[in-house]
Design a binder for these strands. Sequence first.
DNA 1: TATATATGCAACTTTTGAGTTGCGCAAATT
DNA 2: AATTTGCGCAACTCAAAAGTTGCATATATA
Lengths: 106, 106
Amino acid sequence: MMKQDIFQAIADPTRRAILTLLAIQALTPNAMAEKFDMTRQAVSKHIKVLYECELIKPEQSGREIYYHFNAKKMQEFDHWLSQFRQNWETQFNQLDQLLTTIKEQK
Amino acid sequence: MMKQDIFQAIADPTRRAILTLLAIQALTPNAMAEKFDMTRQAVSKHIKVLYECELIKPEQSGREIYYHFNAKKMQEFDHWLSQFRQNWETQFNQLDQLLTTIKEQK
DNA sequence: TATATATGCAACTTTTGAGTTGCGCAAATT
DNA sequence: AATTTGCGCAACTCAAAAGTTGCATATATA
């Protein structure tokens, strides 16, 4: 498992749109293909990428497969991003200080 | 401006490493190239991508260019992620409830 | 049982992107 | 002034990824 890179997975705009859709409700591959102007097979390949990095989960229902958004996996991004969070808070505090200093000089 | 996609920029592992480096301290292209086993020109291309989506900012100093991490831009990513945050909190609450129910049944 | 539908897999083409080599320009050094 | 150094740009190669067509399989429906 984890054949695919989660960063690579969200790099594609179509896959991001799929994730946004699935975050609202689970859908079958056919239903997704109808939403985008794309063949079913093309969507199917995106699904494979998203599935392999565990961003979505399949739920078999007869011959249909409903794909669900896996929120837990999305948190990996959040974790990666957190290394910068300290940094941007600092940069903004510095900006705040600068603005305050300018104000006081007036 | 904004020729490059921020998601695309982050998709590459080398560019992610560059961002991590620059979040700690500003560096010149040559300094970055030394960190990775890569030609300066290869790094230079990554710099271009990161610059064009405003994830880094150049600071000219003589003939050297120090590139700084732009924390503000990274927040855009955070913003995109926030659409799922509600979702994953919900999914975890549901999991919590399920686990609680199972416990109570014992 | 025959047929239609939903899906995944494989082969192929086309596009994109990472990395290299070579060049030119501007700032430092001699 | 000549040379070295730091950098960006353009052309090229090569690998990966997006999308297509065709096919196989499994589940419904007639």
